[in-house]
Design a protein around this nucleic acid. Structure first.
Lengths: 196, 196
DNA sequence: ACCTGAACACCGTTCAAGT
DNA sequence: ACCTGAACACCGTTCAAGT
């Protein structure tokens, strides 16, 4: 509040003429972020549609990590958020997922988008570009020798990992999508035929 | 700080004789939480071991949701945390996962535990035991009719879901574990034989 | 060694008073 | 209508001073 007021060249209390509370302002800002997420395009198949929407959400939220916590805590009833939820559910429905599987899949995707992005933000913030020497010194200081497998893992990280690293968000996303896809094949829909 | 001091019947500044900062106290409390998580037992197979450790972590963290954010943001170098990370990596190593897959799997599990639990906490906090009538009124007020698929989904939630609901944490956890397992089978290890 | 009073630099927010 | 001064009830933290 005070910072925003200063940026606007105004006293903090003036803000309360335009917004009822800090939460209202944060909620509006979150909505501007969520608006930027590309909605799933149903004509490319449900998996590809969900996939590109999730990747878009991740890319957008990575630029605004502060928005993850407001989105996760409390019922975000912002229009953009509702629109996105509706579009995701529409995609599952068009794919003829049975409602209980659609529910599981939707929650899995939603929690992956928000949870992973927040986890990732904390992770990269915790590792502030430590170069090799600083990192080894850091590791020594906290008694890395008592954790041999962690040490091996850290040494592997420092070595030359061959080839481009797989994107971790997409890795986990595909595990979810492929798993749901397999369950969909095993659970026949009401019409009992493949979705067309 | 002030609340803790009041609970101890002491002035806030006295605390700084025992701890350097608020973060130090929070870190110590987080460690007491992480200590309660059951470590993976290697003799039951890597999948079952990781699975029961993750479920234990979820159960513990669900009782202390405030610990998720401190665990995610910043490098938690607490002993219990390091011990758990080391045990997870040891399990992947014993299963002869190639290091790049072990890295992906470990991050997927870690982000699932912390990210999902935090997501879940916000979700259940946002839905504070709304009974049917309150919820329908709430839905009407925010223009649910503009989101038809969300409306269908909400109505399904209100109806009688047949059978016991699958645990969502375990659902996503198994998607990760099974997916990693399949990738392990496709990627031969150095010794080129099945892990014994 | 252990505790505290006074103080500092922060928060979000209210309300009556200004123009 | 739009802004603000003064004030309130909060934070975490420091430091010199108490016992």
């Amino acid at each position: 509040m005070r910072g925003l007021a200063r940026a606007l060249g105004v006293e903090p209390m003036s803000l309360y003429h335009y917004a009822a509370s800090r939460d209202e302002i944060v909620g509006a800002l979150v909505d501007r972020v969520v608006e930027q997420i590309e909605l799933p395009m149903p004509d490319e198949g449900w998996k590809a549609a969900i996939r590109s929407c999730a990747i878009s959400a991740h890319r957008v939220l990575r630029r605004h990590p502060w928005a993850c916590n407001p989105l996760m805590s409390g019922p975000r009833i912002s229009p953009a958020r509702l629109r996105m939820v509706d579009a995701l559910l529409a995609t599952f429905e068009a794919a003829r997922l049975p409602p209980d599987l659609a529910d599981l899949a939707y929650h899995a995707i939603d929690s992956h988008i928000l949870g992973f992005t927040l986890w990732e933000a904390g992770y990269t913030r915790g590792m502030p570009a430590l170069t090799g020497d600083d990192l080894t010194a850091f590791l020594e200081r906290l008694g890395i020798d008592r954790y041999p497998h962690l040490k091996t893992h850290a040494e592997w990280h420092l070595g030359p990992h061959d080839g481009p690293r797989q994107d971790e968000f997409e890795f986990k996303l595909d595990l979810i999508l492929d798993g749901v896809d397999q369950m969909r094949d095993r659970t026949p829909t009401q019409s009992d035929g493949p979705a067309r």
